[in-house]
């Protein structure tokens, strides 16, 4: 459980970029969390509310936070079948060969944010 430190990293990344753009306030943050990224969306949200209350970076009480989930997808390198894997991420459910690569689900990134300069 290290969502507190991950959330403070997100706020740091956004605040640094907002400063470069001359914003004084961050109105919203959108992040993408992959199902296989080992990041818990609920815990990340809780951390966000905590830091928003503290007014960390350029956050204030109206700053919004959105998490977009990225589903896990794997693709068989033998038969090219694409599927949502269970824990057997390398096993193709169609040809039953363990020859699949993940094509999505590991992403953890800041997608966008909205900044303003309304002070």
């Amino acid at each position: 459980m290290h969502e507190m430190s991950l959330m403070s990293e997100i706020i740091k990344i956004v605040s640094e970029d907002a400063r470069l753009h001359g914003f004084s306030k961050v109105d919203s943050i959108v992040v993408i969390v992959g199902d296989l990224s080992n990041v818990l969306p609920d815990a990340l949200e809780l951390a966000f509310f905590h830091f928003r209350k503290q007014g960390l970076g350029m956050l204030d009480e109206n700053t919004e936070f959105e998490i977009i989930r990225e589903v896990a997808k794997a693709k068989c390198q033998t038969c090219l079948f694409e599927f949502t894997p269970d824990y057997r991420m390398a096993l193709c459910p169609k040809c039953m060969l363990p020859n699949c690569l993940l094509v999505s689900g590991e992403t953890f990134r800041v997608e966008s944010y909205e900044g303003s300069d309304e002070l």
Binding site: L6, E9, I13, D17, F108, R109, V110, E111, E114
Partner: peptide, 13 residues
């Protein structure tokens, strides 16, 4: 104003 950042959260790491 919306900024498309698309930056890995673990970039510094």
């Amino acid at each position: 104003m919306k900024i498309r950042l698309q930056e890995d959260v673990l970039k510094d790491q």
